[in-house]
């Protein structure tokens, strides 16, 4: 049943970005279920509940109130139950420092939020169609930052 949909979780505190994100998936007409959490605590509370449905991809904003994306990433990769979740960092900036840190902590891809809706759609469709097994095996610092 669930296999028909790609389960996606977005953790982002910015309403506009949430709007762009959900609009983009609606526009793409890919069968997805998008769950949204507005801060790190909400996200981690959900993921740690007994019967929580683990997402196929987690889009994680770094700059969030209460618990930052970086803290969430550390907790997720430390927890055996969640460590297999594909984590896509989804951030406004792409500073060398952030890229370096998240790469080392085990995130799967780094997406710099595009400034163009068309570009956003391209990015998201590319991310959901990635063969993660293959991508993760060939992951290096250059391929970590998503370029179109």
């Amino acid at each position: 049943m669930y296999n028909d949909y790609i389960n996606i979780i977005l953790a982002d505190d910015d309403d506009d970005d949430i709007l762009f994100f959900t609009d983009a998936f609606e526009n793409l007409k890919i069968k997805t279920k998008v769950k949204v959490f507005k801060d790190g605590i909400e996200l981690m509370d959900y993921l740690t509940t007994e019967d929580a449905l683990m997402p196929d991809i987690l889009f994680l904003d770094l700059n969030m109130p209460k618990k930052s994306g970086l803290e969430c990433l550390i907790e997720i990769k430390d927890n055996p139950k969640m460590s297999e979740i594909v984590v896509a960092i989804y951030s406004t900036s792409a500073s060398e420092e952030d890229i370096e840190k998240t790469f080392v902590l085990g995130a799967n891809i780094y997406i710099k939020k595009p400034a163009d809706f068309i570009k956003l759609k391209k990015v998201l469709s590319k991310v959901v169609s990635i063969n993660w097994q293959y991508h993760t095996n060939n992951l290096n610092k250059n391929s970590f930052l998503l370029r179109l």
Binding site: D14, D16, D17, F20, D23, N63, T92, S93, S95, K113, P114, A115, D116, F117, I118, L120
Partner: peptide, 18 residues
């Protein structure tokens, strides 16, 4: 400058593109 200033700018651009 690299984060906070870029964010509203990016949103303006995205809204413009929409």
């Amino acid at each position: 400058a690299s984060h906070d200033l870029q964010e509203p700018l990016r949103k303006i651009q995205t809204f413009v593109s929409r």
